[in-house]
Write a protein that binds this DNA or RNA. Structure first.
Length: 199
DNA sequence: CCTGCGATTTGCT
DNA sequence: GCAAATCGCAGGC
C-alpha cells in the first residue's frame, strides 16, 4: 500500500451516515505529526445505539459527538488508553467512528519508541489503544479538527481494499450489530480477526 | 493456541 | 460507587 499523495478528506466525507463513513475509511491514510499509515479496521457508533456514548444524551462528555462532523473525539478507556474516534453525521446527530487499527507506514521508529518494548510492525498499531499510543494521540486532541495539522487524512491511493464486517469488539450492549469493518485478509487488524472467506 | 487478571481514571447514577 | 469501545503478561493445554 502507498502513502499519502491522494486527496485529503474534507468535512463532506464525514457529513453522512456513520456506517458509510466507517466502511469507506478502510484503505484511507491516517497520519498524525508525520506518523501513521493505512486504516484497516473501524467501528461505527450511532446515536440510537446503546453502545454509543451519546445514547445517554447530551452531557459534557458527549458534547463533541453532537457537534460538527470531521472532528476528533478522544476519551480515556479503562483509565489507561486514549481511544480515537472521528465524528460523523450532520451537527446535532451524534455519531462517531472508532479507529481500531492501522497498517503502519511512516514514522516507524518514533512509534516504536513511544510504544516501548519491542514490537513487530504487526503489533505496533493493531488495536485502538495501541495506535493512539504509537501516534502520540491523547486527550489533548479531543474536539480538534481532523482536516488540519497535525492530522492528515487521505483517500485511498488506488482501489479501496475489499471490506469484511463483523460484530463490534469489547462492548456489552448491542453486541449483535455488524458495525465492525476490516480490510479483508489484513494481518494488521486487532483480535479477534474477522472470519474471512478463503476464496 | 487459549483463558484469566490487574492497572488506573473518568463520567454518570 | 462502579462500569468501562483495552492491553500485556502469566499460565494451561
Amino acid at each position: 500500500m502507498k502513502s499519502a499523495s491522494e486527496p485529503r478528506l474534507t468535512t463532506d466525507f464525514f457529513d453522512r451516515s456513520v456506517h458509510a463513513v466507517a466502511r469507506e475509511l478502510i484503505g484511507c491514510g491516517l497520519f498524525f505529526d508525520g506518523c501513521g499509515g493505512t486504516i484497516v479496521e473501524t467501528e461505527s457508533y450511532e446515536r440510537d445505539d446503546p453502545a454509543c456514548h451519546a445514547y445517554v444524551g447530551l452531557t459534557e462528555r458527549t458534547r463533541v459527538l453532537f457537534g460538527p462532523p470531521g472532528r476528533a473525539y478522544v476519551y480515556l478507556s479503562y483509565g489507561i488508553h486514549s481511544l480515537l474516534n472521528f465524528v460523523a453525521e450532520p451537527e446535532g446527530d451524534a455519531a462517531a467512528v472508532l479507529i481500531r487499527a492501522i497498517e503502519p507506514i511512516a514514522g516507524l521508529e518514533r512509534m516504536r519508541a513511544r510504544r516501548g518494548k519491542k514490537h513487530s510492525d504487526l503489533d505496533l498499531c493493531s488495536g485502538p489503544g495501541k495506535l493512539t499510543e504509537a501516534l502520540g494521540i491523547g486527550l489533548a486532541q479531543n474536539d480538534t479538527d481532523l482536516g488540519r495539522d497535525p492530522f492528515q487524512l487521505f483517500a485511498p491511493a488506488g482501489e479501496p481494499p475489499p471490506v469484511v464486517v463483523g460484530p463490534r469488539i469489547g462492548i456489552t450492549k448491542a453486541v449483535d450489530r455488524p458495525w465492525r469493518f476490516c480490510a479483508a485478509g489484513s494481518p494488521f487488524v486487532s483480535r479477534p480477526r474477522p472470519q474471512v472467506p478463503t476464496a
